[in-house]
Design a binder for these strands. Structure first.
Lengths: 144, 144
DNA sequence: TTGGCTGCAAAATATTTGCAGAACA
DNA sequence: TGTTCTGCAAATATTTTGCAGCCAA
């Protein structure tokens, strides 16, 4: 996304588009593997050596509040983030913990049973696949 | 599940069915809300005051390794556990963080796109719904 | 010049590990 | 008697918070 358009969107919501926020957003845009806070911190330190892990967390929270990024609850070890906010789904490799987007439309296949439709006001739904990716199967032993 | 049958299953896998393990398993069997390690620890201290949080974590791991319980990745704050291991799905209230089982069969509705079927050996899949339960909506303000 | 943002440090929370002694086969 | 398990304490990992100084509007 062009920088001036981004800036306007931020202004409208009362946020400032600081270099740190831009760097994190840009990194998430190009990184398909859905990094964790630590991944982002390590990657950004090359270009932005003064950045702190707290700023990464703060920024991820701010971007999430703005609706610019989404937290993915899929890895029991840590949170991951992605910048696509249209509803979609994910598959994770339980070896290398890389996550990929699945843009299939599952909405027809996921009917919430009546009992819960009465009990809950549903805000979102996601489908999560767990598996082992080919790279890890080749690297790993025959168990995988 | 009767205690002698449980014991045999544990023996067969080389585990001992200690009072602590039994207590945790029993608690998970009756607790429909899918407690976290801390929930379990607090609840069990009444009847078993010497239990330690480390034993809860150790036991949850052991039970998971045995295939007796399942870890639910749904709450970004902490892990939750349930004792039903047949594949099923979940809905969580993002206010009180209680989790409920959904036993609907979604297998027909969840076709993994070809690109991933070639790239991944899939081991499991789950559907996760997020929402607000009626109790929390009534308790909470009109925002919810 | 004021409010928001960063970086640092410390705190809070969640989970794991090492180890000595207890329990059990 | 040897192996496994527990409980404690410490360690580790993840995430959050407080605050002083900085920066942009």
């Amino acid at each position: 996304m062009p920088i001036d358009r981004l800036k306007k969107r931020y202004d409208r919501k009362g946020f400032k588009l600081t270099p740190q926020r831009l760097a994190i957003l840009r990194y998430l845009e190009k990184e398909k593997g859905h990094p964790s806070a630590e991944n982002i911190y390590m990657a950004l330190k090359k270009d932005c050596p003064t950045i702190s892990i707290a700023t990464v967390y703060n920024t991820l929270q701010a971007l999430q509040d703005m609706g610019e990024i989404r937290e993915i609850v899929i890895d029991p070890e840590r949170k991951h983030y992605c910048c696509r906010v249209e509803p979609h789904h994910h598959i994770i490799c339980t070896e290398c913990r890389k996550i990929y987007d699945i843009f299939a439309d599952y909405s027809q296949g996921l009917e919430l049973p009546d009992e819960f439709r009465k009990k809950f006001k549903v805000t979102s739904a996601q489908v999560v696949y767990y598996g082992i990716c080919n790279e890890c199967r080749e690297k790993g032993n025959e168990k995988l």
